[in-house]
Each structure stands twice: as structure tokens, then as C-alpha cells.
Write a protein that binds this DNA or RNA. Structure first.
Lengths: 194, 194, 194, 194
DNA sequence: GATGAATGAGGGTTCATTCAT
DNA sequence: TATGAATGAACCCTCATTCAT
């Protein structure tokens, strides 16, 4: 046995992560996920009630890993250093997921569980940053948190979509973001290319 | 006849804008769009080759209107004032489209025309900001442009998803964004609520 | 154009009558009905919302034809003669439908429309007999009506299931039934075989 | 161990009786029967080769009990008294099974064993009545037997479907049926309501 | 141009049955 | 015997697209 759910559960989830991530929810077929997982189509339905719930489970697992990785980034650090670490984690996380971009764009409409979960996830992520900012005396910490995350999201896009993006570019982008957020656009950092 | 394409063309485009915007691409039905446009299903195919191309046309029209509105925002202004105007336009634009959120999230995979167009649109938008920043001597103008737009995108989300967002909140959010971008997070603006 | 619904509508109904009648509801496939009707599978759904509703429509048409044929049997006749005619109609009706026995046995559970319709049909049929009996002074006309129809139903079964049943046997069975109902079992009729 | 087949065998048969009786053959799931019987799904297949055979076994047991109860009803009695007893048994039998109506309506097509058994059961039941009638000098005893049973079947329907049917109504219905069969419709019995 | 009836490929889901443990 | 995870065939229904009128 693998996890608490068993090997097949994990295999299906992994396969779904790959297929959904590659094609998006609507263009993915359960049969393909099953095949990729090495199980029969019916087996998928032993573990997940529907295609929507499978997608939700994939998303949930991914977001939870994400938040877990973020947890330590801000603790016990000066603000700028914490933000820099966070920016690094954020961008590297997606850099590793370059092959799964569709997971983040093509989500189903209908499933209320998923909508609810996503709302919660975004809130949790925002709160994490907001609390740190508040602690450091930044005013309007929630708005600032959202703006910071928004910057990261946009910079992440380049990473996802640009074939030529290299890992060291990620570090420089993170440094740029933290610096801009702290000091504004006039305080040019020492980044040379990009 | 209305536009160069004829009344029906516009009617279908308008209907598609509404339906796609409400339900997303995959959950929208051509039959519903046709009904909403007051034409027969077959008529849609006289004007658009496929569902994908109709979606692309809707998106294209919307993005072009957007860029057109943005054009004048930055010209002949000081940087901070230009960014503020731009932030205002950006956020108000989506505020007016609160009912069509799905248009921005649920797009189809498959259509290469759309992908190509979206890439071009994002590039044009970025360039518009980048050129202004370069003119003002900001280093790494492209990265800065992306970061600014990313901030706006995230702040826009609240507007789209928050039922209670009011129009004057939009203005304050824009002011906040421009200020943060110019001076960094420590230089608290005078915004009180939000 | 054939009826008010068009040729395809009738073709599908006829095909459904045959297939449902031969295999019963659950063992019948829409694809087979479509094929038999000479239309595509999807076409069935242009005329009928679901398999259940198609079955209901088939049943409804059949029952309505049945009641229509029965209408004249009892009017302006002496009781015994009327019952004899009715018995004849009842039995001949099913004799003609020997190939469609499943239509009467294998009906779906779920459809409330069908349940409601069948209840109404049985009631109408019963009332037709009941009213005649009441007019002729028979006490408890409803119970008597049900008993008479029950007799016919059982005698019909032999006709449906017995390969060797011939049309002239039908007449004799009808005569027997009317006689039994009028006079009881001791008043043996002159029927010789069966 | 309970019967010759073991406790599980009986438990499955009982569960199947309940589930098939409530939902009919096609809408019943083996998994539900297994659950109700307190055994695993696979266990059902240790005792019954298929869903059809389980249904056949349920039907067989029920019919055999029925015939067994009927056996004594006609022996050593005058005809009218025997028929009355039989009518009573017939109607009370179904009265007790009001909750299991689907068992009698929704049977599968495919199983030849079941078809064969049902044919035999009906024949046995008919013969039982036929022999008594022949003994009493009634002509065409088989036809008369079928007519009598048909009457009972129809009258039974009211009992199964009418929520308000009470046990004493059953007795009066039986009396009515026996009387009608003996003397015809003009010889009104003294039944007052129904 | 405009219509809408007709098409048919396609996929999510169910569930009887099997079999390794 | 007993289990229940796994299988995969089967089928209803949807809907983008076509085309005769």
C-alpha cells in the first residue's frame, strides 16, 4: 500500500494531474486518465464520484502542497527577505509545473465544491502574506498582499509560457519582484537582463 | 445594415459575448447563442466557421475595444498620472463586465487562432506600458510593465468576484496600485478603507 | 407529411412499438429503434425527450386506439350483446398484437407520466363497462366491471402466449366469457373445444 | 445452519425478495441485495449463478409457497365453498404482499428458466381449479378455471394499488367473486360497499 | 441569405460479474 | 467459504455541424 488511500488512488490522481494539466478539464477524457493510470475506466469511479470530483481532488492536492511549501517562507524573517523567499517559491513552483499549465486555466464551471475550495485557497494564500505585512506595520495589508500575489501571478505566466525560460531567470525575477514591491519602480535593482 | 458585416453578425457577436461570458466556452451552446441573437442555428455558421472561431471573434472584439480605450491613457502625461489613469481604465473596464467573468476564465484549448491572438494582445498591452516606462527612464521596463499589469489583474479579480464592490472603491484601488508601483509598500498612501 | 407530427415522428413511434413490444422497455436500445425507423439516433431525441417518454408515447397511442375501438361496442345494445361485442374486440385486439406482448408486461418503473396515464386508462376502460352495467341495473357495477375485464385479461393471455391459437378460437372464447359473466359457471354454453 | 442451503442462502433470498419486489428486476442492484442480506457482493454469486437466476429463485419460492397454501382450499368441500376459500386465499396472499408489487410486474425477459417456470406455475394453478370444476361437472373446466383466476387477478390489482384497501374489504371482494362466478352478474350478492 | 431538421461521433457513468486473497 | 476491488461492455444522451429547401 502506498498512501492511506492505496496505490490505485494515487495512480489515478497522478494520471489525472498530468492529463488535466495538459489538456484542461473539458478536453480530458476519463478513459485516457484511466489508461494513463493503468487501471480500467470503471476503477476511476471507485475512487472518485465524477469527473468533476476527480478534478477537484487534483486541484486540492496541488494547492495544499503549495500552501505547505509556502508556510515556512515568511516565518522569522525580515520582511524583504521573506517576500523574496516567497517570490522564489512561487515562481519555482510553477517552473516545475511548466507541463501542467492547463490545470490552472481550464477549470470546470459547475462544481460548487471546487469553487468553494478555490475561494478558500486564494484567501488562505492572501492571508499568509497579509499577516506578515500587518506584523511589519504595512498599512492596508490585504490590498498589498493581493497586489504582491498579482505581480507574482503575472510574472509566473512568462515562466509557464516561455519555452526559453531558465531556472536562474526565475531567481532574478523573484528578486526583481520583491524589490519592486518594497521600493517602487524607481529604485532600479541590479538585474541586468530579462 | 448596421456594421460592415451586417446586423445579424453583430447580433450573434453580442449574444455570444453574453452567453460565453456567463457560462464559459464549454458550457455554452450554439443553439442558445442563436436563440439569444434571434437567428436560426444554421445562421451562426454563415458568419462564423465554428464555435471556436466565434469565441475568438468575441474575444478579439473585446480586447480591441480594450486596447483602444487604453491608447490615450498614457500619452502626454507624467508617469504617475498616466499609470493612475491606466489603472482606473483597467479596473473600470472589468467593473462594467462583472456579468461576463467567464469570458476571461473559461477559454478553449484547441483553437490556435485564439492562442495566437491572446499572445499578441497581451504583448501589445505590455508594450504600451513598457514603452512609457522606458521613456521615463525606468530600467527593465518590460518586467516592470508585466508586474504592474499583474497587480492590476489581481485587484480586478476582487472587483469581478465581490458582489459588494462599488464604483468609488474602484477609484481608490486604482490610486493604491499606482502609488504602490511608484513608491513601494512602505510609502503608505492615504487610502482609508477597502 | 404524414400526420400532424410528420413522417419521422410516426416512423419512430412505429419502430418503438415494434421494438419495445418485442423486447420490453429495458432490453430495447434507442439505437435499434432509430435504425428500425430509418433515422439517426439523435433524431429520436428531436421528437421524444427520453427513452421513457418514447415508451409512454407508444403506450398512450396504443391505449387510445384501444379505447376508441371499444367506444361503440356497448352503445345501443342489450347488455349481453354488448358484452359479447366487447369481449370480441378485447380478444381480437390482442390477437392482432401477438407479436408485441412485451409492450404489456415490461414497462419502466420510473416514469410518473406513464404511471399516471396507465391509471387513467384502466379507469376509463373500467368506467365504460361500469356505466353500461349500472344502466342495466346491475348492482356494484364497478366491481362487476373489474371482474369482467379481469376475466378477459386472463383469457387474452392464452391468446398471446399460445402459438396455436386461431382466430376462430377467439370468437368462441369471447362468447364463453360473456355467457359466464351473465349466467355463472353452471349455465354451460355450447362451446365444444378450447 | 438454517435451511438445507445455509443461512446466507436464505438471507440473500429474503433480501432479493424485498428489493426485487420494491424496485422490479431491472432497477434492482445486486450490490443492494447483498448489502441488505448482510453479505458481500461476491457471496451472492456463490449461491446464485446470475441476477436472473436469483430472480428466478425468488419467484419460484414465492410461487411454491402460494401453491402450497392453495392446496387444501378446494379439497373435500362443496364447489362454491371451495371457490370462496380460494378467492380468500388468493386475495389475502397479495394483501400481505402489498409492499412487493414490483415482483409481479417487472420481470426480466431473457431468462428461459424463469419463463418455463412461470408457465408451469400458471398451469399448475389453473389445473388445480380445473380439476375441481371437472369433478363438479362444470363443462369446459379449463376455460372456466382461467376465467375465475383472471377475475381474481384483476380484483387483486385494486388491493395492491389502493392504499385504503382494508383487510375486511378483502373478504367481501372474495365473496363477491365466488358468487359472480357461480351465478352470473344478475344474481346480486348482498355486499353493500366497495 | 436564412432556416432548422437531421446527423452521428463521442464520452460519462453504471453495474453484473470475476478472481486473487 | 467469503470478500470486495477491479473490470469493461454497454448505452443514453448531447450538441456541433451540415444541407436540402
Amino acid at each position: 500500500m502506498g498512501g492511506i488511500h492505496g496505490d490505485k488512488y494515487e495512480a489515478i490522481l497522478d494520471a489525472a494531474y498530468t492529463v488535466f494539466g495538459t489538456k484542461g478539464f473539458y478536453e480530458s477524457k476519463i478513459s485516457e486518465i484511466a489508461e494513463q493510470a493503468g487501471v480500467a475506466k470503471g476503477t476511476v469511479y471507485l475512487y472518485f464520484k465524477s469527473k468533476e470530483q476527480l478534478f477537484t481532488a487534483v486541484t486540492r492536492r496541488d494547492c495544499e502542497q503549495y500552501l505547505a511549501e509556502m508556510q515556512g517562507a515568511l516565518a522569522n524573517r525580515a520582511l524583504e527577505e521573506g517576500l523574496l523567499r516567497m517570490a522564489n517559491l512561487h515562481l519555482h513552483y510553477y517552473y516545475k509545473r511548466k507541463q501542467h499549465t492547463k490545470l490552472f486555466f481550464m477549470t470546470p464551471n459547475s462544481d460548487p465544491d471546487l469553487m468553494e475550495f478555490m475561494r478558500g485557497f486564494i484567501q488562505d494564500y492572501t492571508d499568509m502574506v497579509k499577516n506578515k505585512l500587518a506584523l511589519e506595520g504595512v498599512r492596508q495589508p490585504e490590498l498589498h498582499a493581493k497586489a504582491f500575489i498579482g505581480m507574482m501571478e503575472r510574472l509566473k505566466m512568462d515562466i509557464l509560457l516561455d519555452k526559453d525560460f531558465r531556472e536562474y531567470d526565475v531567481d532574478q525575477t523573484a528578486e526583481f519582484a520583491a524589490n519592486l514591491f518594497m521600493h517602487g519602480c524607481k529604485a532600479g535593482s541590479g538585474i541586468r537582463r530579462l
